[in-house]
Simulated assay, not measured.
Amino acid sequence: MRIVVDADLCQGHGVCQDEAPAVFTVPKRGTVQITDPSPGPAERDAVQAAIRWCPTQALSIADGGDADSTSKGTV
């Protein structure tokens, strides 16, 4: 699993950090930073929740190397 961020969409709400604090951090003024860009299976549910609840749908998961394997917003 590889996490993809659309920095143009991120507004720094911090929902991702609340859902998956081991994977995401959001500074007080800024956009999301991925602290673990390729988290293991144990973090998958938390990452999926972060993607699901992101108010701007700025996060997605890319499981493979092609564009067809990207899941955005709807996990």
Rank of each mutant, 00 (worst) to 15 (best):
Ala42Asn: 10
Lys28Ala: 15
Val26Ile: 10
Ala46Pro: 03
Ala67Gln: 14
Gln33Asp: 07
Leu59Gly: 08
Gly65Trp: 09
Ile3Asp: 09
Asp6His: 06
Pro37Tyr: 10
Thr56Gln: 12
Ala42Met: 07
Gln57Asn: 14
Cys54Ile: 00
Val47Ser: 13
Ile61Phe: 01
Gln48Leu: 15
Thr56Asn: 14
Gly65Asn: 12
Lys28Cys: 02
His13Cys: 09
Gln33Val: 15
Asp6Lys: 03
Ile34Cys: 06
Val26Gly: 00
Ala7Ile: 10
Ala22Lys: 12
Gln57Met: 10
Lys28Asp: 15
Ser60Trp: 11
Ala42Cys: 01
Gly65Asp: 14
Ile3Gln: 04
Gly64Ser: 13
Trp53Met: 06
Ile61Cys: 06
Asp63Cys: 03
Thr35Glu: 04
Ala49Gln: 12
Gln33Arg: 13
Val47Trp: 09
Val23Gly: 08
Val32Ile: 05
Gly14His: 02
Lys28Ile: 06
Asp8Arg: 05
Asp45Glu: 12
Thr56Arg: 10
Asp63Lys: 02
Gln57Gly: 10
Ser71Met: 11
Asp45Phe: 02
Asp8Gln: 05
Pro39Ile: 07
Ile61Arg: 05
Ser71Trp: 11
Val15Phe: 08
Gly40Phe: 11
Ala7Asn: 07
Asp66Val: 06
Gly65Pro: 10
Trp53Phe: 14
Ile51Ala: 04
Glu43Ile: 02
Thr31Lys: 14
Ala49Tyr: 01
Ala58Pro: 08
Ala62Thr: 01
Arg52Leu: 02
Thr25Ser: 09
Ile61His: 02
Val15Lys: 08
Arg52Lys: 08
Asp68Gly: 05
Asp66Leu: 10
Asp45Ala: 14
Val5Met: 07
Ala46Cys: 04
Leu59Met: 03
Ala20Cys: 12
Asp63Tyr: 13
Glu19Ala: 15
Asp68Ser: 15
Val47Gly: 14
Ala50Ile: 03
Ala22Tyr: 03
Val4Cys: 01
Gln33Trp: 01
Ser71Lys: 14
Ala20Gly: 06
Glu19Arg: 14
Thr31Val: 14
Lys28Tyr: 00
Ile34Val: 15
Cys10Tyr: 05
Glu19Asn: 10
Gln57Lys: 13
Val26His: 07
Ser69Pro: 08
Gln11Gly: 09
Gln33Ala: 13
Leu9Glu: 13
Asp18Asn: 12
Thr31His: 10
Lys28Val: 11
Cys16Ser: 05
Ala49Gly: 05
Gly12Asp: 10
Pro37Asp: 06
Pro55Gln: 06
Pro41Gln: 12
Lys28Met: 08
Pro37Met: 07
Pro21Ile: 05
Cys10Leu: 11
Pro55Val: 01
Trp53Thr: 01
Asp63Arg: 07
Ser38Gly: 01
Pro27Arg: 00
Ala7Met: 11
Thr35Leu: 03
Gly65Lys: 13
Asp6Asn: 11
Ala42Pro: 00
Ser38Glu: 14
Ala20Asn: 09
Ile3Leu: 09
Arg52Tyr: 05
